[in-house]
Simulated assay, not measured.
Amino acid sequence: MGKRIGDKGYLIIVRDLKSGATLFVGKGKKGECLDGFMKKLKSSKANIEFVAVDLAPSFTAWIKANLPHAIIVYDHFHVIKLMNDRLNKVRRRISRELEDEDKGEIKGLRWKFNRNNEDLEETAQAEIKQCCTLFSELGITYALKEALRRIYRIKDLVFVENALQYWFEKADCSKVPELISMAKTIRKHAAGILAFWKTKITSAIMEGFNNKIGWLTRQAYGYRDEEYLILKIFDLPNLKTRQTL
């Protein structure tokens, strides 16, 4: 997991998916930042079978080079986040093309587009529907975002593969550059994405841990001593935080 810490840059955090223990904290956001973890791994003679990670190319390249027998699992959280990023690019592109007096139709809807449709109030759903009707590219992209989410509800891998193939066809025929790009990305990472259904492994605990690190830095108004912050991160699973996290 990568975590930006104020103006100090990025920290790379490795955790055990079973125990939740923090195994390593490195500085930076490139794969080489994990070389220190590899040294510890060799000395411990531990065997890593699965790695849950986001779609960052640097991490994927490092894992393939250093853990060639480990199965990479791309968590669905990151796939949907990437899809939302593409959706936002479409929304911004359309907004730039509009006259100033027409931008009100699309302005301020980002968080509503990013949320799951079923979690929106009826008024918000109506706003999204109207916007998608007015701007066809946005409507197509939003529909395929929701379709991609629904694929993750399917349990049978064969049905998942068929559903993804149908999704690819729709994306390729959409003529929306951002959708075509997203389809290429999913195809490129298909093995790791499909591994989610084979292994049922998720990095969801990392996202919760990410929130706790944010809580930790806010409580201390930021840590000037980076090494001390790293020590606190190692101890974070033992730290009690508010239930609102």
Rank of each mutant, 00 (worst) to 15 (best):
W62P: 02
D54K: 08
Y166A: 10
E121Q: 12
S203C: 04
E105N: 14
N117G: 01
K42M: 06
N47M: 10
A204E: 12
T123N: 13
I233W: 10
G36C: 05
R86G: 03
S181V: 09
L41R: 13
K27I: 10
Y142G: 06
T133G: 07
N211G: 14
L120N: 05
G28H: 04
P237F: 01
L148E: 00
A46L: 13
E178L: 03
H76A: 12
K40T: 12
Y166M: 08
F234I: 03
I106S: 14
L67C: 06
K29I: 01
K29Y: 04
V51A: 07
D172E: 15
A65R: 15
R110A: 14
M206H: 01
C131V: 15
Q130K: 11
K107C: 10
G208T: 02
S203N: 15
A171W: 06
E207F: 05
L239F: 13
E49G: 05
M206L: 14
L23M: 09
I63L: 06
T199S: 11
D225K: 13
E105G: 13
K170P: 00
L17M: 06
N66M: 04
I180M: 08
V176E: 03
E137L: 01
Y74H: 15
I186N: 00
L67I: 13
M206K: 02
W167L: 01
